[in-house]
Design a protein around this nucleic acid. Sequence first.
DNA 1: CTTATATAGGTCGTGATCTGGCCTATATGG
DNA 2: CCATATAGGCCAGATCACGACCTATATAAG
Lengths: 320, 320
Amino acid sequence: MTDTPARLLNLLSLLQTPREWPGSELAERLEVSPRTIRRDIDRLRDLGYPVEATKGAVGGYRLVAGAAMPPLLLDDEEAVAIAVGLRAGAGHAIEGIEEASVRALAKLEQVLPSRLRHRVITLQAATIPLTRGDGARIDPHTLTAIAGAATGQERLRFGYRAGDGTETKRQVEPYRLVSTGRRWYLVAYDIAREDWRTFRVDRVSEPFATGSRFVPRELPTGSATELLGHTMSRQPAHNIDVTFEAPAAFVSARLPDTLGAPETTGEGTCRLRARSTDSLEWVALRLALVDCEFMVHGPPPLVQYVTDLGARLVRATPVR
Amino acid sequence: MTDTPARLLNLLSLLQTPREWPGSELAERLEVSPRTIRRDIDRLRDLGYPVEATKGAVGGYRLVAGAAMPPLLLDDEEAVAIAVGLRAGAGHAIEGIEEASVRALAKLEQVLPSRLRHRVITLQAATIPLTRGDGARIDPHTLTAIAGAATGQERLRFGYRAGDGTETKRQVEPYRLVSTGRRWYLVAYDIAREDWRTFRVDRVSEPFATGSRFVPRELPTGSATELLGHTMSRQPAHNIDVTFEAPAAFVSARLPDTLGAPETTGEGTCRLRARSTDSLEWVALRLALVDCEFMVHGPPPLVQYVTDLGARLVRATPVR
DNA sequence: CTTATATAGGTCGTGATCTGGCCTATATGG
DNA sequence: CCATATAGGCCAGATCACGACCTATATAAG
């Protein structure tokens, strides 16, 4: 208990609550002399954690933003909140940080006390995510298990359901997890097939790290995303074409950036031409939320879906 | 650099990557003898962090889940991912952990390096949240500023726009931030008015912690939520009444728990009666996503909205 | 079974470090 | 001006950390 490193960690933890701490109070809490507290503050500063101090009668210490992230000391509830937030985001994550998001989740879940784990699962079950992709929902557990195996360089076993529905058992050396905004892919070396393969994560079932380590092979093509190239290009995408009866600024403020920006076509009208790999349901929803009159020109499946959805909604209310 | 506590923090950071670390590798990285590493591992265990070790030829150390959360050591990208995730969740957060979520965000943003801060803001701006409430979007910055002032016991100055649109300047002693799932409220002691007040956070502008500390007063009514009671009861709520042409299990699996569960009314039909404070737009959206025929009986505004939305969608496609 | 390699931990001597106490300097708010 | 806060130098004594060398033990591969 009375160990120096332990006290430093405790001190960091205390300073992380957003308030000012007078040195005397810290000394009392940590059961050391004020002189030692001053030395500890010095030590933290040497370690790169910027502790700000205000002098004078109402002064105190406070941890502020610095050059590097200090270790985050979370209480139980905060840890649960972060885990739930990241899990909710793992499915239809924010553009550009999907990989980091999963890494952070894997890191957190690795050390999350088990009594908190079931709370996270319960809370997450209560939220039904809006599927942004085509309904192929991804289990956060699968994602973190794969991510963990990849960074830990452990061989991975899982069941894989191919496009035609046939289920196979795979054992691979996971290389990298990549996200395309809409879908997750695992690039890995398939041991039995003695070649590199890409797997769609939503088709992976029961991933299990065998625990046996491996030394990463060199990718033949150079980079993981390159290997994904031809898989990606086969992805179905829609050429969206919609006109809105509202200014372009109004529309773009209500549409996600991933759909691109509409161009002004006249007084109070604009047109959106975009290539999207998002699901039609998602696109239709976003269009409906723009809250102005619009006209869908294509693609035909989207026209069909919007027509059907509109008809269903009209049927859903009593005729006047 | 050659400090013992610094090395321990580094060690914790290394062990947090989900992989196994042989003692020799750790020794090399931290530039100490393997014996010292073993001692450090011992120290970490004494501190309560469960370091698991596997013996044998391919053994190594690894941090596992224990009784308490160890300090999370995040790299830049992971920190950004968490911040963005929490911010996105702050608006329409997950039931039951809103407060903890905001606390975690406040803690993180307090120490987030400024070069990461603008990345967070940029990324967040790219995502347009589906407003679950009635469009009164809440600025995460406002939320964290208030939360920080409340836990730090600092006086707070802000502009407040009353229901009739008049803007007033307030200076308060913030007591607690409470969330009702749909809305955020600040319970505080208004210094000028010398009484307790509740403020809607979405009407607060430019919160600013003055830095002057105060000793928390006793709440006259006992608890913050109690004080909120009469404010809350004036909240508009809708009595939703919808029948679905699908089994209750099918429907409840596609509806959020907050709307309650539908009851079976016949062979393949069910009825949902719920009281909701969510916005009509949100409810209509969720209903449309159930993906089956349904009929909205009430409330009248919801019927109207669904009719209008359906009509707009029908108009949005070329007539055949 | 044998061998290699990993964790686990005891012991010891040297040298560094940490602590508390006491001192002064300095900035701030009332 | 005064009380109170941070900042930090100096010193003496106790403690602790380190590396080196040792043995015990579990595991995987051959």
